[in-house]
Design a protein around this nucleic acid. Structure first.
Length: 414
DNA sequence: AACACTGCCAACCGCATCGGG
DNA sequence: TCCCGATGCGGTTGGCAGTGT
């Protein structure tokens, strides 16, 4: 294999697209549609291969793209969908209008995975790291009598962590009474463990920042899974050392929560809580202006997006400018997903109205307390850690069951 | 100010699948 | 049935920008 065959036929440009190239491609597709991608570059006057043109269009030039940062709701949805679909980015992207598979994949790899690990959740299995590591480490010990690092990341990715040391950190920290096995995050202990290990010959590159809160935006600490709990003391997801006491437990936002048929009665009231800060206005037009006959489509899409708080989701409207044959979907599974999601109240606008701005309610100074709180929290969870561990395990089992039910409903396997 | 480090993102690469001849 | 080109998808990488030292 190698580069797409058409790329060998003539000297074609690679790398970043110039504004002129963008304009040529945009103008061509706006007027003629893309048709056969392999003929697009020639007809559009571009020194690119069709594959490159297609990618550029899909990931950047498409007028229905939503740009800007992902909202918390979008991230939550991605996590939930990933739990069911795995690394099927295109299917996940299909549920997030205006987002591309590439964008979601990048977000997952650069941000969400890290956040989930900080929460003590294995991003591949969506199970607690301690559970996964216990299994894998046990296997490795049995097989080799010599612990191999990075046993955790075999299922869906090829050593995506890029650092064996990290896996060891997770293994160590997940077994540490005050770390990931309790779904708690203690930046001091994790990072110190990292340094300890890295000084043992490994690179510290990915170690310190994996455990360091300084590399995360404030919202990194808001809005991830919380396991079932009945009081704040045992709230593993919004643990006190993360300054999240302000989280309002009534502001649940969860795909699972919105679909009670997938929930056990005990979960429907307080489990799987997500906080949902209002998404900022995110739609930005590409730098190149569209021909006038399309600008109205842009505006209507933008309005559509804004009015629903996150662009959710009228596919027929979003693709109103698109050739009809490109809009319809004959994939029953896709339709099922769309119907399912749309028939729920999983529309951003619906929820936004009922959600206090939990993120903005967390005062900036509270962020500075995270570190010191984590120190005091150490003694706190020494006292409680056994009870917490049990509750966390029970909770994670319930969560896993929920996901399994969800998966079964769509014929997916976890 | 210079350098190193880190995270993010756009784009590429390789493979799988599909469909037409 | 096989071949081949087109397309789609997921994994990976290179470069840039921001931040820290």
């Amino acid at each position: 294999m190698g580069r797409h065959s058409c790329c060998y036929k003539q000297k074609l440009r690679k790398g970043l697209w110039s504004p002129e190239e963008d304009e040529k491609l945009l103008n061509y597709i706006t007027k003629h549609g893309h048709g056969c991608w392999s003929s697009v570059p020639k007809l559009a006057g571009l020194q690119r291969c069709g594959k490159s043109c297609r990618l550029r269009w899909i990931n950047y030039l498409r007028p229905d793209l939503k740009r800007g940062p992902f909202s918390q709701q979008e991230e939550n949805l991605i996590i939930e969908l990933h739990a069911v679909l795995g690394n099927r980015w295109s299917q996940i992207a299909a549920q997030l209008p205006g987002r591309t598979d590439n964008e979601i994949k990048n977000l997952w790899n650069s941000c969400i995975k890290k956040k989930l690990r900080l929460r003590g959740i294995d991003p591949n299995t969506h199970k607690p790291l301690s559970e996964v590591l216990d299994q894998n480490i046990g296997k490795e010990i049995n097989n080799n009598n010599n612990i191999k690092l990075s046993p955790t990341y075999k299922s869906n990715e090829k050593a995506s962590v890029g650092s064996n040391e990290l896996s060891l950190v997770e293994a160590v920290s997940s077994r540490h009474p005050t770390s990931a096995s309790e779904n708690r995050f203690n930046p001091v202990e994790v990072s110190s463990t990292s340094k300890l290990i890295s000084s043992n010959g490994g690179s510290s590159k990915s170690l310190t920042h994996e455990g360091s809160p300084s590399s995360c935006r404030p919202c990194d600490f808001v809005g991830y899974f919380t396991f079932p709990h009945h009081n704040n003391q045992n709230n593993y997801g919004s643990s006190p050392d993360m300054g999240l006491q302000a989280v309002n437990q009534n502001t649940t936002f969860s795909f699972l929560n919105q679909n009670p048929e997938f929930l056990q009665p005990s979960m429907s009231s307080s489990s799987a809580i997500f906080t949902a800060p209002p998404p900022p206005p995110t739609r930005v037009k590409p730098s190149i202006s569209l021909p006038s006959d399309n600008s109205s489509t842009w505006d209507s899409n933008a309005n559509n997006s804004n009015s629903s708080g996150g662009g959710y989701f009228d596919s027929s409207a979003a693709f109103s400018w698109w050739p009809p044959e490109a809009v319809k979907s004959d994939d029953p599974e896709e339709i099922k997903w769309s119907e399912y999601l749309h028939n729920t109240s999983f529309l951003m606008g619906t929820h936004q109205a009922s959600q206090p701005a939990t993120y903005s309610e967390i005062k900036p100074e509270s962020q500075s307390h995270i570190l010191s709180n984590s120190l005091s929290a150490t003694s706190w969870h020494h006292q409680n850690h056994h009870q917490q561990q049990q509750q966390a395990l029970q909770a994670s089992e319930m969560y896993t069951k929920d996901l399994q039910r969800l998966a079964v409903s769509f014929g997916q396997t976890l």
